[in-house]
Design a protein around this nucleic acid. Sequence first.
DNA 1: GTTGTTGCAAAGAATTTGCAACATA
DNA 2: TATGTTGCAAATTCTTTGCAACAAC
Lengths: 140, 140
Amino acid sequence: MQAAGERSEAALRHAGLRATRQRLTVLEALRGRDDRITAQDLHAELREAGEPVGLTTVYRTLSALADAGLLDTFDVGGEQAFRLCGDAHHHHLVCEVCNTVEELHADEVEHWVAEVAKAHDYEVTGHRADIFGVCARCRR
Amino acid sequence: MQAAGERSEAALRHAGLRATRQRLTVLEALRGRDDRITAQDLHAELREAGEPVGLTTVYRTLSALADAGLLDTFDVGGEQAFRLCGDAHHHHLVCEVCNTVEELHADEVEHWVAEVAKAHDYEVTGHRADIFGVCARCRR
DNA sequence: GTTGTTGCAAAGAATTTGCAACATA
DNA sequence: TATGTTGCAAATTCTTTGCAACAAC
């Protein structure tokens, strides 16, 4: 698929990163999934898929993409997991069985954050609101 | 302080844990602070305070107390941090400078979670809503 | 006395770093 | 060609485990 590759290439350039085969491989792999995944697991999958990328490079690429704001990060049992995400701020609905992540937008939460900030005299730098559970598919 | 020690002793018993000197030391130390702290840092502080507890024991105690629901856990740059907490479910307002944590209770968030669960057909197992920023004291 | 706990040393596991070969712009 | 990137091996760092001595009930 040509278009997808170009989109990834543009995203990398925009982040100030060279569009190497390895980075494109990682980014394309992330585009093809909606779950959170660790560096170790992604590395294993790429190896199985016959598009090997060094483990170190997977770590560095995921870290760089996260820094650039292209990936959301999750803490899963002490390991860091990543997922491609939209630009805007959002919250998450996470299935703990299949690790699928749905992005949520909630004005209620934003309002709550603003109110708390005012009431407690905090300079807010960020917030996070995630819901965990089991999706319908995984309950069947 | 006698009363405080007895309170910790009762808490440990209630959690099915023997009230050892080490566990009491850890629990009392946590009672005296309102910030989140890692096992490594707590271990160092206890050592400095002249009430040494083995690092392994600090890890095991914090883990046991967290399992018993007495501690909240946080992921701070890949390390696990802990803080004594109330029984009820709550959210957090965290100062990223001094690591002080204030507990918040928000019906708005609870409502939001319930709505999302219904709309997305999820069996919710938990949720987390934390606000990060800099407290008034640390901004001065 | 039994059984749970401690703490050291060693093992484990995730992640990072040094560095020479290599690919991109 | 100049500079950024890769990937291996080694190093780091946090955390857990084996096990013999020890303390709580």
